[in-house]
Each structure stands twice: as structure tokens, then as C-alpha cells.
Amino acid sequence: MAADVTAANSARAPLSRFLRWDILVGVLLVLVFAGGAIGSPEFANAGNLSFALGDLGEIALIALAMTLLVVAAEVDLSVASVLGLSSALVGHLWDAGWAIETIIPLVVVVGAVCGLVNGLLVTRLGLPSLAVTIGTLALYRGLAQVVLGDRAIAEFPQSYVNLAVNNVPGTPIPYPVALFAVLAVITAVTLHATGFGRALFAIGAQVEAAHFAGIRVKRIKLILFVVSGIVAAFAGVVYTLRYGSARADNGSGLELAVIAAVLLGGVDFDGGKGTLGGVIAGVLLIGLLRNLLMLNDVSTEIQSVVTGLLLVISVITPRLVAVARQRRRAPSPVMPTTPTP
């Protein structure tokens, strides 16, 4: 995994001034892994690690799309609700006798529509994405409840459940994790090596300059929100099959873990800075920590405390570092900015 991180880092992101936060997280990841391996005997075996990875699947998938959004200085808080809505739809339609083959494309389209609504409200009305997606967080979760109420649907076809749970033959890697790996490579290339990625960084760092350079800011943001909706809906399918249970409250609060992973991975919440390698390290760090806590019989509630703390720490540490640096150095070479004609 560490190799993965360095590979993505060699794609020189404009974070180099920043103590290389993503490398720090990578090192921390290795330390947690080593500590876990020494501290608890069940931790470092293939079975447990494969379980830990599988348990991360949805968070990891959504984190990819979220990284693109945060780099472009937007955020989508509604992802967990889209996941829940998708799960509720899968359950409801399966219960109504539809075929899984029809259901999956349908919920993915619903996810795209959810993302489109977010995107249109943000780009057409110019509303802050935090406000919009906190509204749709409630709306989509509410729709999930409307669809499924308090029912829980189970007993999905075994062949599909197997796809969500089993390992790729001959490896300890569950199918969803393999899918994640493929998508992670595609996302890394998109973000760090294509014109689209360049445009994202420019939008996040200086949206006006990006607009003046002919980058279609609104269209790109709209695409990102739609992608985020699609990925979240697909993650909802995986979640449902993996747990073998469709409920309206599936994945509640998952958005927090996703955002924590992204910010922990060194992506600046203000946009324009970050690497996908860092995010992958962040996802894995959160996953391993949760797994370790679980192995040590720490309750899930305390796990959410840990996630919350990680989130707060990961946003506040870079600011403190920045403040400390500014104190040490003379103020950055910014000329006074009152315009003089």
C-alpha cells in the first residue's frame, strides 16, 4: 500500500510547501499497521485484513469522487443519503419482484439525478455546496424512508451477494476492493495527469483565473456532482449486498468518514491542493484504526468518536502548521492589494 502512495505522490502535486502532509499520513499508516501487528495477534493475518478492506469498500469508493470535489473547492454531504436511498430502492424493487439486473442500472441513474440536483443548485443558483448538500442530505434520506419506511429487505440472490463479499479467486482481495483499486488508478490519472485534473486544481485554487482561462467551471462542477451521485448510488448497491440487508438508514453518517478520510489525506478543504495517494492513505488509516478498535472490543460508538476526532485534527493541524510557519517567516511576498489605477 505504501508503494501506491509514493507512486501517486511522485505526480508532483502543488503541496510541496506543506511538509508533505500526505507522506506523513503514509508514514503514520505504516506505524499503525506495525503497531497493530505487534499489539494484537489477530490483526495482521490475511483473513482479518481482507475483512478490514472489504469493510472500507463504500467509504473508499465514495472518497474517490469526494476528492475530486474537494480539490475543486466543493463538497457533497449528501453522499451517505444517496447511498441510503439507493439501498432503499434496491430493497423495495427487489421486494416488488424486479430483477437485480434491472435494479442496478436504475438506482445508478437515480444517483446521477441526485447528483444533478446538487450540481444544478450549486452552479445555476450559485449556492454554497455545503448548504445545498446539507439540505439534500435530509431530502434524500427522507426519500429513502418514504420508499422503504422501517422495513428491512433481505435475501438477495446469492450470486450477487458473493460478488460483494467474496475475494477475487486466489487473492485475499474482495471484489469491491479490486474494483476500488481499478477506479483509484483511473481517478489518480484523471486528477494528476489529464487536462481535466489540471482544470480541477485551477478551479479549486483560483476559480476566477480558471474562468478567465476558458475553463468551463460550471460544467465541470456539474459533472463532479453527478459522478459523486453515481458513485454513492453504486456504493449503496455494494453496501446492501454486502450486508444482505436493505434499510432506509443504511450508511447514516458515512459522509463523515469519507470527508475525514479525504481531509486526513491532505486535501485542502479550501480546494486546489491534495493528492489522491494521500487520500488512499487516509482511507486505509481510518479503516485500520477502526479494525484495531474493533479487535480490541472497543464499541462502535467510540469508533465514531475516533473518526470525529481524526476529522477535527486533520483540518486543524495544517492550519496550525501554516500559522507557525507564517510566524517564523516574514509575511508572504504579497504586495498591498488596494487597486491603484
Binding site: P14, R198, F201, A202, Q206, A209, F212, A213
Partner: peptide, 20 residues
């Protein structure tokens, strides 16, 4: 500073931005 350049990014990236 606001419209012409992405101040945090490199010279080559700024020049390249109009010719992606």
C-alpha cells in the same frame, strides 16, 4: 492575482492552463 494567475501553482502550469 485573481484573474490572471493561479498564484499557488507553478510557472509551467500557469502557462499551460490555456492550452490543455
Amino acid at each position: 492575482r485573481q484573474q490572471g494567475l493561479v498564484m499557488d501553482q507553478s510557472i509551467e502550469r500557469n502557462i499551460g492552463l490555456t492550452g490543455l
